[in-house]
Design a binder for these strands. Sequence first.
DNA 1: TTATTTTATTTGGTAGACCAAATTTTATTG
DNA 2: CAATAAAATTTGGTCTACCAAATAAAATAA
Lengths: 221, 221
Amino acid sequence: MSHFEHYSEENYLKMLYKLGSKDVKKVNNTALSKALELNPATVLEMVRKLKEKKLVVIAADKSIQLTDKGKKKALLIIRKHRLWEVFLVEKLQFKWNEVHMLAEQLEHIESDDMVDRLEAFLGHPDFDPHGDPIPDKNGKIKINQSTPLASCPAGKTVKVISFAETNDAFLDYLEKLNIKPGIKIKLTDIHEYDHSLSVIIQKKSVQLSEKAARNILVEPA
Amino acid sequence: MSHFEHYSEENYLKMLYKLGSKDVKKVNNTALSKALELNPATVLEMVRKLKEKKLVVIAADKSIQLTDKGKKKALLIIRKHRLWEVFLVEKLQFKWNEVHMLAEQLEHIESDDMVDRLEAFLGHPDFDPHGDPIPDKNGKIKINQSTPLASCPAGKTVKVISFAETNDAFLDYLEKLNIKPGIKIKLTDIHEYDHSLSVIIQKKSVQLSEKAARNILVEPA
DNA sequence: TTATTTTATTTGGTAGACCAAATTTTATTG
DNA sequence: CAATAAAATTTGGTCTACCAAATAAAATAA
C-alpha cells in the first residue's frame, strides 16, 4: 500500500524550508544531505523528483530552492507540526521540550479537515510552545519582530518570544533555568570579556553564555 | 529512514485479531489475503516474518493464529485506534462514521506515554464512539456482561457499569442526574408508548428517554 | 593555470512491501 | 481412486528510499 509515500517528501520540503529561512548561504546538495543525514546520491534522486513536481527549482549555481508551491507545502507541514505541539503541551500535559519527536510523527497525518478542527479546538493559537509562529491554513505566517537576547543593551527588561535552536540539550538547559516563551528577563549586565550575560529570571540571578543568548529571541517587555 | 517499518506489520496483526475474534472458521492465507486485499504471495511472506518474531503460529491445518504476544500487540494497536476515535469525535466534533480512516493513521504513532496521556485526557473512556471496548494499557479488555439499561425488565435494581456514548452532552446529562459508574438504579416502570423509563436514583424518581437508556450499561445489582 | 579539493553525478546494490503468473500441494468430489 | 478445484508456495518482477564507491565537473588554491 505504501500509505506513507509522502513521508519522505515532506521531510525534504520541511528541511529545505528550515535551511532556506535560517542560513543565508545557498542550500546545495551537500548541505541538504548533511542536514537530513542522508547520502548525497539519495538526496539528488529525491530532489529531481521534487523538481519534476515543481516543488523546487535548481538555480544556475545548483542551489536548491523551494518554489511557491513547495514553500506552501512546507508551511502546511510546519503548521501541522506546531498545532500538534500545542495539543501535546496544552492538552496532554507534556513538557514543551518533550514534544518535538512526537510532533514529527503527527505532522504526517493527512487530513486538512482534521488540522482545521484541531486548530479550532486549540483556540486558534498563534504560536507553538517553543514560541514559533503557526502558519494559517493558507501557509501564511505572522512575523514577529523579536531579536536575540545577545543583542539587547544592558539594563533592559525583555519578554522571551521563541528560540533559534531546538536541540534537546538547549531545551533542557532552558527548562532548568525556567526560561520559556512569555517569561520576563532583566538583562543586568553584559561582560565584555566573554560576552556572557548576567540576567534576572523570576528574581533569581543567572549567568548566560553568549551562545545561549544568541538563541533566545526576545521582544521589548 | 523508513520510520514506518512497523506500519504493515501492525495492519496484519490487527486484521488477524479481527478475523480471529469475529469468524469462527479458521484464518488461512487466502482469508487473510482477501481481508487485507493483498496478493497471497505478499501475505505469505509477511506471515513468515510474523512467525519468526513469534507473533503468530501456523497450525497443522495451516491456519494462522496469533500468539499471546501477537494478540497483545494487536490489542494495543486497537487501543490506540479506539482512543483516537474518541478524541476525534468528542474533541474535534467529527461524526462517528467519519473517523475510521483518520484513526487508521493515528493508531500507528508510537509512544506509549502519549497513549496513556490521551486516555487520561479523554477521561478513561471504556468504549469508542462505535461502542467497542477500549483495551487497557496491558491489552486487557473488560469483558463485562453488562447490558443496556433499556433492555432490563421493570422492577429490577441494577448497577451502572459504563456508557456507550461519551459525548459532552450525554456526560453533562448524566452528571446532572448523578448517574456514574457504580451507582444503583431501580427501574420502576417502562412506558410502552415511547419506551421511556421511570427509574429511582438515590431515592429520587427520574424519567429517562429510550436513547439515554440504551447508552447506559448496567449489571444486575 | 595547473593541481587539489569539493561538489555533483553516475553506477551498481540493498531491503521492505508489494504483484502476476507458474507450480506444487492439499482437498474435494464425481 | 482419479479428476478437478482450491489453497499454498515459488519464481521472477516492480517501486521507493536508501547506500557506497567510482567518476565527472566545478571551484579553489598554489
